[in-house]
Nucleic acid binder design. Structure first.
Lengths: 144, 144
DNA sequence: GACGATTAGATCGTACACGATTTTTCTATC
DNA sequence: GATAGAAAAATCGTGTACGATCTAATCGTC
């Protein structure tokens, strides 16, 4: 007998991830950011000047996803993409002043999202850690 | 201070959903299915002859996502798309014999996936229910 | 039974996501 | 210091996702 999507863990994960992105739209739209762009911005706010590859490892994305996304963020004036002088294969990403300001504005978003869930901080952390555990079972991190 | 993606619940959800889809590839590729196509197939295996709108509600997708996906599945010979005689606005989806055979082959996939996670059945159900709870907090189901 | 409002899908445009391949640069070893 | 192999991004093609809009069919009300 075929299991219905409604009963599948995978579908719960898939549909909840969509619901999460959808819940982020009203938080990100005023800033002009998409959800993956918000992740890149947050990663660079924590450590500026990272390479594309380092961001790719952190966000578990490929260069073929990031390159066009980063070009859009560069076109929006939030970051610069420059080849590393010491190793010209690498591209370093640096936030512009506007990018830093945007990151400051975005800093309150996780709290706003947490409020939307109606969950306690400890429930949020527990769920996060359960998901990270499942993720590591499915796809162990590469470099990093 | 900006929270790093690695510490965010939303990123745990986002990246674990990607890891899940990636873990499904070796299970689905031999059948020629993508992950959302697998969901449609499973939904129709449980109840054949559903409308596009009913599948959309069940999978929480929009018609603009489903229409091209369903056309690809029709082109692959797995289902037929026919206007309902009683209400020509609706399109009914019916599995072909090949579609039924494919669904039979796909019926073992959830168990194979569960094995990949290394989690117990009860852990899987618990996590599924936690995710469904979060999903309903973020985006209550519409029709259904 | 006409006609405005609603509903169901489809179409269009934009933005991910990723497999496969390509280009450029660097490194290792001779 | 030439060169094979490795590494980092970029490019290309396909398949989701979804907001906005469009079209065709049905429903509600008079």
């Amino acid at each position: 007998m075929t299991l219905a999507p409604a009963d599948m863990l995978c579908f719960a994960l898939y549909s909840t991830a969509h619901a999460m992105q959808s819940a982020y739209v009203p938080l990100l739209e005023p800033l002009g950011l998409t959800y993956p762009q918000y992740l890149v911005l947050s990663a660079l706010a924590g450590e500026d000047g990272q390479t594309v590859g380092r961001i790719a490892t952190a966000l578990r994305l490929e260069s073929n996803t990031l390159t066009p996304l980063l070009k859009r963020m560069e076109a929006a004036g939030w970051l610069s993409r420059r080849r590393d002088a010491a190793d010209e294969r690498q591209v370093r990403l640096t936030l512009t002043p506007q990018g830093h300001r945007l990151a400051d504005q975005a800093a309150g978003i996780p709290a706003a999202f947490a409020a939307k869930t109606g969950l306690s901080l400890s429930d949020i952390h527990d769920l996060r850690d359960i998901l990270i555990d499942l993720r590591s079972r499915l796809k162990p991190p590469v470099g990093d």
